[in-house]
Design a protein around this nucleic acid. Sequence first.
DNA 1: TCCACAATATTAATATATAATACGAGAGCA
DNA 2: TGCTCTCGTATTATATATTAATATTGTGGA
Lengths: 259, 259
Amino acid sequence: MTGKQNTLYVASLAKGLRLLRAFDQSATDLSLAELSQRTGLEKSATQRLANTLHLEGMLDKDPKTRRFRPSHAWLQLAYVYFWSDPLVGLAMPTLIDLSQRFGVTVNLAEISGDHILYVSRIPGKSSQFASTIVGRRLPALNAAAGRAIVSTWPAEKTDDAINNWAIEQFTPSTTQDRGTIRAALDQARTQGYAITQDQMIMDQTGIAAPVKGHDGTAFSAVQCSFPSRLWPMERILQDALPYILESAQAIVPHTRASF
Amino acid sequence: MTGKQNTLYVASLAKGLRLLRAFDQSATDLSLAELSQRTGLEKSATQRLANTLHLEGMLDKDPKTRRFRPSHAWLQLAYVYFWSDPLVGLAMPTLIDLSQRFGVTVNLAEISGDHILYVSRIPGKSSQFASTIVGRRLPALNAAAGRAIVSTWPAEKTDDAINNWAIEQFTPSTTQDRGTIRAALDQARTQGYAITQDQMIMDQTGIAAPVKGHDGTAFSAVQCSFPSRLWPMERILQDALPYILESAQAIVPHTRASF
DNA sequence: TCCACAATATTAATATATAATACGAGAGCA
DNA sequence: TGCTCTCGTATTATATATTAATATTGTGGA
């Protein structure tokens, strides 16, 4: 290590966490060699760290194939997170009501840097698996929930987000034009909710209402996904929107500045 | 350290994980002093480890109170876990169907040592918050799901579980008698499902069917919770049980020996 | 305003982690 | 069946990261 040592930073711990982050949606079981390659860690380091994570219960190791994968401990952490986030408990009954009323996926999303992350997800009758699991993180500017949240911020911060934050391509219809996104946010600011069509999944309409703090700014939102074939825009606006707005307003957050 | 050093174990990483485990359902935001006390780690170690976990995004730190709490990263780990566990995706449509059909909480539980852990939970109309969040871990012998699973094992392993595994008191009605538990498991083995009443929550009937592998043994189960007032036992057995059994049979697991 | 406790910062000593490397296991191919 | 290559496991000398004692600063409560 060059220069003065940072005595408040434990590099071994950081490397261990880096190993955990080597796993993702499409890499759910990994060998030592793969772990080493994906993390850039030296082979012996990978061995020591993986072994320690296994002994500590964070990774399961298949005795035959010797491959590692996430253990139940990863869900235990989520369990504690749920208790630590008062908004999740507060919102749950409302989200369940909404989902049962319309038979669709209902989410609670929170801002997470320049992304949003789903902290609670109630599945509808025909929800795809990927739409039912918490922890998914999406660029805020692409998602209805992210747009609903950012549209409640002071103009300067909204502008900064529009100009600088990440955007990705999810469907052939996902807009990459920041002008189009700006117009969508202006509209969201005006009408108090955000709508996206075909931006995340084709034939899905997303509609989100911000969960505002006392000062009118939001860091979370209630979001619903409607299959476009069963729910034309008119029907969503007339039948569902009033309930979504009411639901978001019913969730009174304790201020949690995650921004 | 006395004796030969274990060069395959990274104690600093283990300490960092220990710090994460200091958080639980009722201790969701902690100061440095509390973290030090709860983990038994020395004050400076706690400071270094907490600071590193914060820098690495695992803990949020309130700038005013300087208290730490779980970050969104904990849910991101859960997200990856869901993709790593094929049973979760496989079971999801079935669990959603069951929940919508009867309007009750439906869970997928997996064995985890001498406990069961809920890996998927679909809420019913009136589900309590605690019954809607994944990652909860319960003694297998107390829970319907645990009993359904253990009852599919060879008699010797079932006996060992009955004689040695942890049991806890959840309600005034929770049995502590291992004879009563043995009788319940014998009945579960015979009839192919397990029922508990008032064991976890008062006025709640739990019914679980094991998700069997090709050899007939199970390491997971589908479990439903019925409010006893709305669902007398007769009604559960006649109206719901056939669907629960059918659902569990429909979930064909890839063998995953978590045992 | 004062005090007690908590948080933060510093540093010399040493225990730990590193990384190079040897050896064993297993899969794939000829 | 034998050989080769890659991966996994195990070992060890040594560099350095971590430790823990302690000083300093900050903050909340009386």
